[in-house]
């Protein structure tokens, strides 16, 4: 073997050792401070209902949906998140226009109906997830003091493609969209006021 080729091999060996050392150093440093894998989560307590969730997600119909937390919902007859209360009022006290631009909220009379005063009746509001695209308009109208703050946005993990860099997170003004630990994700960031009331599962 020629001198040139042994010299080349020697240099290659040195480079290999240096490269392996670099890889090892990076591995050591990152593995030491490694965290459990994280998923993109929306913190409803921080969300300012800006509407970017609907438009920034890489999916045509965003992976974010409005969710009704029935434990906080007032079951109101005139839900300000369902009826557009700035529109013309009908004779029965409801309104001509609805808030949701995609007609994704279902309204159903539940419980015992009071024939004397319809305002005493309870209505259940559920989100049709095939229609909702997380535009946050209903969430905005449900804010206290108009509503109870039961409606909130959340990323649906069965739809989310778990992008390396979530494009909603990159745009979210109050930074309500961030990576949370997998273990915390399902329980910790569900609803408004969850921290206050304690995890009730």
């Amino acid at each position: 073997m020629s001198d040139k080729s042994t010299r080349r091999q020697f240099l290659q060996g040195c480079a290999r050792a240096a490269g392996a050392a670099a890889v090892g150093a990076v591995a050591l440093k990152l593995v030491k401070r490694a965290d459990a894998d994280k998923v993109w989560q929306l913190d409803p307590k921080l969300c300012s209902e800006c509407g970017l969730c609907a438009t920034r997600c890489v999916l045509k119909q965003s992976a974010v949906r409005a969710v009704n937390n029935f434990d906080e919902c007032g079951y109101c007859r005139i839900c300000p998140a369902y009826f557009d209360t700035t529109s013309e009022e009908k004779d029965d006290g409801t309104f001509t226009r609805l808030v949701c631009p995609r007609n994704a909220i279902r309204r159903k009379l539940v419980g015992k109906a009071d024939p004397a005063d319809p305002n005493n009746n309870y209505y259940e509001y559920t989100i049709d997830e095939t229609r909702c695209n997380g535009c946050a308009r209903c969430v905005e109208r449900c804010q206290p003091n108009a509503g109870n703050g039961a409606l909130h946005l959340q990323v649906r993990h069965d739809l989310c493609r778990d992008c390396n860099q979530c494009s909603i997170a990159a745009a979210c003004p109050p930074a309500a969209f961030y990576r949370a630990r997998l273990a915390d994700a399902p329980a910790g960031y569900r609803r408004r006021g969850a921290a206050k009331k304690g995890a009730k599962a």
């Binding site: 029935f70 209360t85 309870y122 039961a150 609803r191």
Partner: peptide, 17 residues
């Protein structure tokens, strides 16, 4: 608009989100 949330019995059981 703002009402206290009714009990589960009043509304025939609450769904879990």
């Amino acid at each position: 608009f703002q009402q206290p949330t009714p009990g589960a019995d009043d509304v025939g059981g609450k769904p879990t989100p």
